[in-house]
Nucleic acid binder design. Structure first.
Lengths: 222, 222
DNA sequence: ATAATTTTTTAGATTTGTCTAAATTATTTT
DNA sequence: AAAATAATTTAGACAAATCTAAAAAATTAT
């Protein structure tokens, strides 16, 4: 079974919006995809006839098991391309997404599996998000937000939950990138800002608004 | 200016059909694209309003200078992807075309120029066809069809003008691939078949129908 | 619990690219 | 040069994905 670019975009967006439980609403999805709610309703009917989601009108919806499988395939393609663009073509971190949005819709299982091998079966993309394998399995880091780690423990940045240009600007300014090792030196309870230190450099402050999007893991001794 | 996948496919097909002069006909193009003539007429009107071709109804058509420029851009993308698939992902010669057909429509100038650099600015794709550079310039081998070369002169295969599975089957059977060095030992005037020898191997026969698609160049001493 | 508001769906239209069938123009044959 | 044939275009339809405007259902507020 293959799906149109449009169908794939809806499936992927629903996957990202639906957590482990709870329903996605029409308006949420229309905001995410920048379409009108009426268009969402049309596509939901279509995806329902294709048996990818549970949907009763006015009741919200979620992908079923088949739908999630399809979504993981799309995410696999997206993240492998992001890895390729970043690692091989030296695209900067914030440029990869837009191009990967297009590449992910190229239909060829063989292409993706060969690309995976060529890249060395990476398990995480340049944003630190896990890349599903051929079976749709995803590796998980035990990751923690820097707002929640103990003081003076050096950890490695492995995920950034907000990738707007504004956010990336702040990260670039403070030399934070995927894999950066940092420690929290102090927490200011007044505004929940954090004092961060990278290696032996001068410590600096991150606001709570920024800090809550930065996730770290224990340093990999593999 | 960007063009839809469909528009790009028409532009590319017209480019391939129109030689240095002479008109392309509606039926030719509809056969090439496997659409109905009526669909071709519709698209011609559209491409005419976009000023990519000269077209007066019932009179045939050809791309103008702008149209050719667009076509070369599409061909550049196609052939760079073919090179990537073959060289990096180890796709076999006959598998690259179909996937490249999809990849060529991804819109990102930066992607293509970075890919070009990553591949080392190749000038010929795995089929021996030239890859246009950023300015649309194409390198040309001085190539000759094996039906037209002198006897017992070793030359290098650099182009195959027919890439149907049937043709590729024959080539594979006879161990002919891009870069193969061969010589014509004898020409049989009865049916214009050729006796070919590769290195010190046992010579074999190629029919005229096959031979006329195989092109060679002088051996590169660079 | 009724009214007001918000969310979602329906109905009908639009765009792109395709099709069939019929009409028109060009070409070939006699 | 007229008739037959072939090529091309027009007219009208359809599917996919979107939209607007209006109707219906659900939620929130009073």
């Amino acid at each position: 079974m293959t799906y149109s670019t449009s169908e794939e975009n809806y499936i992927k967006a629903i996957y990202h919006l639906q957590g482990d439980e709870g329903m996605v609403t029409t308006n949420e999805l229309s905001a995410e995809l920048k379409t009108r709610p009426a268009s969402v309703t049309d596509m939901l009917k279509k995806l329902k006839t294709k048996k990818l989601l549970n949907y009763e009108k006015y009741q919200g919806f979620r992908l079923n098991s088949d739908g999630r499988k399809v979504a993981l395939g799309i995410i696999r393609r997206h993240r492998l391309w992001e890895f390729f663009l970043s690692e091989k073509l030296k695209f900067s971190w914030d440029e990869v997404h837009e191009v990967a949005e297009q590449l992910e819709h190229v239909k060829s299982k063989k292409l993706i599996d060969k690309l995976d091998g060529y890249l060395g079966f990476p398990r995480f993309d340049p944003h630190g998000d896990p890349i599903p394998d051929q079976q749709g399995k995803i590796a998980t880091h035990e990751r923690v937000c820097i707002t929640a780690i103990p003081l003076s423990q050096v950890m490695e940045v492995c995920h950034v939950g907000n990738q707007t240009p504004e956010m990336l600007d702040i990260l670039k300014h403070n030399h934070i990138t995927m894999g950066t090792r940092l420690e929290v030196k102090k927490k200011f309870n007044f505004d929940n800002s954090l004092e961060i230190r990278i290696g032996r450099h001068q410590p600096f402050i991150l606001s709570e608004a920024v800090a809550k999007h930065i996730w770290v893991k224990k340093i990999d001794r593999s």
